[in-house]
């Protein structure tokens, strides 16, 4: 069975995703690389995650499906821009790699990591959580269906347990 980022990429392709906005992230590194290597996907590196919310709205206005990839700290950067999604009922699909939980070593990751779920729910974004590799693909399929079929905003959280403890390579 392929690694979960490959299966997540396959789910995004099945869903017809054409634009992927991201801020570089270790947990999403494999998925980002797959998207960058795919000529059928516009990969858009962002300076801050809120740009990706606006990007997704623009994509939908033009008839394309987009996703936003980010780390838990990026959720806080998106809050006001999510009002665009809610007010206009734009589809919005996010995959959030979690920090600040499980074996976290950096206390600075904890405040945002621990508030991701309530913050998203307050913004009327539905929250799903994948804790095991086998959870990711079916959650992504279901979320994409509900986002693009029913104009919903859904965030799939990818647990730190799933991604693994951050290890500095140097």
């Amino acid at each position: 069975m392929p690694h979960w980022p490959d299966r997540l990429y396959a789910a995004l392709k099945r869903a017809g995703v054409r634009q992927v906005g991201y801020v570089p992230d270790a947990g999403h590194a494999r998925l980002i690389q797959l998207c960058c290597d795919d000529p059928g996907i516009h990969d858009v590196a962002l300076t801050t995650e809120e740009e990706g919310v606006a990007l997704a709205a623009g994509a939908w206005l033009g008839g394309q499906r987009a996703v936003l990839l980010m780390q838990s700290s990026g959720v806080g950067n998106c809050i006001n821009m999510l009002s665009l999604i809610r007010t206009c009922r734009f589809p919005m699909l996010m995959f959030v790699t979690m920090r600040g939980e499980w074996e976290e070593f950096n206390p600075w990751q904890v405040p945002m990591g621990s508030t991701v779920e309530p913050v998203l729910k307050l913004c009327q974004v539905e929250v799903e959580r994948a804790s095991k590799p086998d959870d990711v693909e079916p959650l992504a399929d279901a979320a994409a269906q509900r986002v693009f079929g029913a104009d919903k905003a859904v965030a799939v959280l990818l647990s730190q347990q799933l991604i693994g403890k951050k290890v500095w390579t140097k």
Binding site: E51, A54, A56, A57, W60, L61, A66, M81
Partner: peptide
Amino acid sequence: GGAAMIGLGLALAQ
């Protein structure tokens, strides 16, 4: 702060 990025998503899509 979102106008230019909405423009980007739209321009890429169309």
